[in-house]
């Protein structure tokens, strides 16, 4: 029954900014092989929850557990840089790439601080350049000069450098043109299918997220309104209510 054990389990998470409550009583889980979407209108608290899971927001309370295949770790009190070593790739949305380093360095940074063996890091970089040919073309270019779509690809590729078991993505589609957005989501789905990387994605673009997700949670004013398989959520009236308010 190990398969039933969730990869990520969040129980009763509260996030506060001073006196303001951004999220309360949030519980969710990501099971083996799943892409899970965390949806909701602006200000519902999705990003606050994700940042709290990533350890980037220290004013959060609740239990966050991560199962790496053999052992369960409590990660809610853990520093973000220690989580990277457990195989959790965090891809924040505020700062996507390191602007003054070139594409190659950006990628190298994803593995350099986790593996002492540089030849392994290089091998991994070559593999990822095969998978993201546009990045290989631009490998000597400063990351700041890449287009928005290329920067998102670079951020995902950097996350993959650590051979993650779980990826946490904050609004990967932010600022992307529709065609690039489709490419990026196809890439994410392929990564899940080929590498078996579970994902938790916070997303504004509800339709696109529900196309690739297996399950979805919908947040509304700081707590989980409802959740279920992506298809059911997509068809549900409550989803429209959450966004339009009723």
């Amino acid at each position: 029954m190990t398969d039933a054990r969730p990869i990520l389990k969040v129980t009763d998470l509260d996030v506060r900014y001073g006196a303001v409550t951004a999220a309360s009583g949030v519980s969710l889980e990501v099971r083996k092989g799943e892409i899970v979407a965390l949806l909701g209108p602006n200000g519902a608290g999705k990003t606050s929850v994700l940042k709290a899971i990533m350890g980037l927001n220290k004013q959060a309370n609740g239990v966050v557990e991560y199962f790496d295949g053999t052992k369960t770790h409590r990660i809610d009190k853990m520093e973000t840089h220690e989580m990277a070593k457990l195989g959790i790739a965090n891809i924040p949305s505020s700062e996507i790439v390191l602007p003054r380093m070139n594409v190659e360095e950006n990628l190298e940074v994803g593995g350099r601080f986790l593996y002492s063996d540089m030849s392994f890091v290089r091998k991994r970089m070559d593999e990822l350049f095969m998978r993201f040919p546009i990045l290989r073309e631009r490998r000597k270019q400063a990351a700041a000069t890449l287009s928005g779509g290329e920067q998102r690809q670079l951020a995902v590729a950097r996350g993959l450098m650590c051979e993650p078991k779980l990826m946490l993505l904050d609004e990967p589609s932010l600022g992307l043109a529709p065609i690039l957005l489709r490419d990026l989501f196809a890439t994410l789905k392929r990564i899940r299918d080929e590498f078996g990387v579970e994902m938790l994605i916070v997303e504004q673009n509800v339709n696109k997220a529900l196309e690739i997700a297996d399950r979805a949670y919908v947040m509304r004013i700081g707590s989980i309104d409802f959740h279920g398989p992506a298809k059911e959520v997509a068809a549900s009236e409550r989803l429209r209510d959450a966004y339009l308010g009723s």
Binding site: E79, T80, H81, A84, L98, R100, V109, R112, F113, L114
Partner: peptide, 24 residues
């Protein structure tokens, strides 16, 4: 050096630095 690289990463984005395993 790895330490020097870490310093440059922190300079550009402390959040990314944490996410790639750097003790900021």
């Amino acid at each position: 050096t790895a330490t020097g690289k870490a310093i440059r990463v922190v300079a550009q984005s402390p959040d990314i630095a944490r996410c790639v395993g750097i003790d900021v």
